[in-house]
């Protein structure tokens, strides 16, 4: 297929998948809490309602960073569907996160700053894991290009399962689920108000929601790369990971930012490092 069509389809379809997943999320969470829950399409209602609200802002630069958050996230997705460089994708994803933090910083609001600082803590936690995952893929496949992953016959999961586990942590952070929902959360929490989202309202809030849907699809897409041949297994794995997150969310309390960084560096990163070193020695044995 023509790459332009692939890109267009991906950009159009991804939000629908993301929104539906968000709907499933709310429904499942409600059921887990013994409630009936909102309709499945509720995230879409929320999205369109937000678009229709009047536009208000608290600073002149915030919207720039929100738009850049969206655009960079979409770019990441394009990289994924066009099967380009995984390492560069991770850098772009990192900047998308920074961009969102800057949106939080660019207004003089205490709650927003809370959230932005915590968003930076999140970047400090997940960015190394993603980069190490890219390195791990390279150690296994020999290339950073995603297209080469699809040429592999053995799925990555067999040799990269520690990195896969670490990626599940990233998924939790990216989905803003407990115990890592520290920068902002899906529920009204008194001390946080809405964290980094506090000053983002109306249509801008809608843009952030849209970006989060893209982000969800993107991270699940990266996870499904671990079983790229045949891809439907990978997609099933990603979906299972998603459902797992909902359970994790509902049985955990929120932890502090410091705890998150320590957890990621002491456990998740160590998993990745051991994985990479192991692969390195396997590869070396091939050379010697």
């Amino acid at each position: 297929m023509n790459p332009v069509w692939i890109v267009i389809i991906a950009i159009v379809v991804a939000p629908f998948i993301g929104g539906l997943l968000a709907g499933i999320d709310r429904k499942v969470t409600a059921r887990l809490q013994g409630r009936y829950g909102p309709p499945l399409l509720q995230p879409f209602y929320d999205f369109f309602k937000l678009l229709g609200k009047s536009k208000i802002a608290t600073s002149r630069t915030q919207y720039v960073w929100i738009i850049s958050y969206l655009v960079f996230m979409v770019t990441c997705l394009v990289f994924l569907v066009l099967q380009l460089d995984l390492l560069l994708l991770v850098f772009l994803l990192g900047f998308a996160g920074v961009s969102f933090a800057l949106a939080g910083f660019s207004t003089k609001s205490p709650y927003s700053h809370f959230g932005a600082n915590r968003e930076l803590l999140q970047i400090l936690s997940y960015e190394p894991i993603l980069l190490l995952a890219a390195l791990g893929v390279y150690a296994q496949v020999g290339s950073f290009n995603i297209s080469e992953i699809f040429k592999q016959q053995t799925p990555l999961l067999t040799s990269l399962w520690p990195i896969f586990i670490a990626l599940l942590v990233v998924l939790t952070i990216k989905m803003r689920k407990s115990p890592f929902d520290i920068a902002t959360s899906h529920h009204g929490h008194q001390e946080l108000v809405k964290g980094i989202m506090t000053e983002i309202s109306g249509p801008y809030y809608a843009l952030v929601t849209l970006t989060e849907w893209y982000e969800l699809v993107l991270v699940l897409g990266i996870i499904s790369l671990f079983w790229a041949n045949p891809l439907w297994v990978g997609i099933l794995i990603a979906f299972a990971a998603f459902i797992l997150e909902l359970f994790v969310d509902n049985i955990n309390a929120r932890m502090t930012g410091g705890w998150m960084v320590r957890f990621c560096w002491a456990i998740a990163i160590v998993f990745c490092v051991l994985n990479i070193l192991y692969l390195y020695f396997i590869n070396m044995k091939g050379v010697l």
């Binding site: 409630r35 829950g37 309709p39 609200k53 709650y111 506090t198 983002i200 109306g202 809030y205």
Partner: peptide, 21 residues
């Protein structure tokens, strides 16, 4: 609470006027 569950109507409790309707 689960007994009444207003989220059925899409209602969410927000702590922030900027997000409220």
């Amino acid at each position: 609470t689960p007994l009444y569950d207003v989220e059925r109507f899409g209602l969410v409790n927000m702590g922030n006027p900027k997000h409220a309707d």
